[in-house]
């Protein structure tokens, strides 16, 4: 046996390589053929409509669901997308390891901004004038501890002014002006005045819900342990994720800004998303099912009832354009 191996090792080696390549090619071809079907599978009926990224078809097509549950795949391919008042922000890969935020107004591309890392969150203000995003900065391919951070950018389409990072704004933590430079901000939501905004500050092991002002470039903390805020269309409530579930997982909460009352959304345990308001009473978010792909759910903002599944193998939910 050993002699046979020594004599024939070249032939056996080459054969083994050919087999591996053939199996790989067959597997990929079969999988890719299968994904074409997924792009037009219907979802649940969404009264006010839903825009989302379709992960099932393998192309990340920005698709929509209408009031009858009919799914329409679009042309745009994005990792994260959000649309409001005719403005769409699309975060996508531009080069190997490089990403960009493309801004579309009325269907045509008006601006692209190179991003310093992997996209995480994308938002457009209700008026369609202020665009914001958060990315993970990982620097290089070797993930060194301490070598990562988040960076949040805000683009004002009225003036064209770009804030590359919220770190440039002044920060007051619980009344004390803050001087540290290496702080992480993520998950912006801009109010209907197109000036004030909420976001998350992470510093050390603590996170804060913060409120900021675009004109004065100043931010203050509001309360602890609230991430990825999303301001309701009527500006009275903020939805956010907060660690509190079993094993320290995130759950969604809605905070009434006037009364300070916090309501937990049932069935949201394990979520990691910036929730989106589909209308004044309904929130949508993506959550990964056990061992599967992310699925988009909607949930009543007053915390009554269990979440309803809207569409599987999909992420980045937002209201229809």
């Amino acid at each position: 046996m050993k002699d046979w191996f020594v004599r024939n090792r070249i032939v056996v080696g080459v054969t083994a390589m050919v087999v591996v390549i053939a199996l790989g090619v067959v597997y990929v071809v079969v999988t890719v053929r299968d994904q074409q079907v997924a792009a037009t599978q219907p979802g649940a009926a969404v009264a006010s409509g839903l825009t989302f990224v379709d992960n099932g078809s393998g192309q990340n097509l920005v698709s929509t669901l209408d009031a009858s549950g009919k799914r329409t795949p679009g042309e745009l391919k994005c990792l994260r997308v959000y649309t409001s008042a005719g403005t769409t922000v699309c975060l996508r890969m531009s080069l190997p390891g490089a990403y960009e935020a493309a801004v579309y107004v009325g269907g045509s591309e008006v601006r692209t901004v190179p991003l310093p890392g992997t996209p995480s969150r994308a938002r457009v203000s209700a008026s369609g004038k202020i665009v914001s995003w958060t990315v993970f900065v990982t620097g290089d391919s070797y993930l060194a501890p301490g070598g990562f951070s988040t960076r949040t950018g805000i683009l004002d389409l009225r003036t064209g002014e770009l804030v590359e990072s919220l770190e440039a704004f002044s920060m007051t933590i619980e009344g004390v002006p803050d001087k540290r430079v290496n702080e992480n901000y993520w998950g912006v939501t801009v109010a209907s005045d197109d000036n004030s905004f909420y976001a998350t500050l992470g510093s050390g092991n603590t996170t804060w819900l913060i409120k900021g002002d675009l004109k004065t470039r100043a931010m203050v903390t509001v309360r602890q342990s609230a991430e990825c805020p999303s301001l309701s269309p009527d500006q009275t409530r903020v939805a956010y994720k907060k660690r509190g579930g079993r094993l320290g997982t995130w759950q969604l909460y809605v905070l009434d800004l006037a009364s300070g009352k916090e309501t937990q959304l049932p069935g949201s345990d394990g979520v990691d998303d910036q929730a989106a308001w589909l209308n004044p009473t309904t929130l949508a978010y993506a959550k990964v099912q056990q061992g599967g792909a992310p699925t988009i759910y909607e949930s009543a903002a007053d915390g009554t009832g269990q979440p309803r599944e809207l569409v599987a193998a999909a992420s980045s939910p937002g209201p229809a354009a």
Binding site: L79, S120, F136, P145, F148, T150, K287, P294
Partner: peptide, 25 residues
């Protein structure tokens, strides 16, 4: 390595920060 950030954030919807730390350790 190039795919992992996308995989973790978009396919699994997980937070990347912990994983980066874990990998370094």
């Amino acid at each position: 390595t190039a795919f992992l950030p996308i995989y973790v954030i978009f396919n699994l919807q997980m937070s990347y920060l912990q994983l980066g730390l874990l990998d370094g350790i």
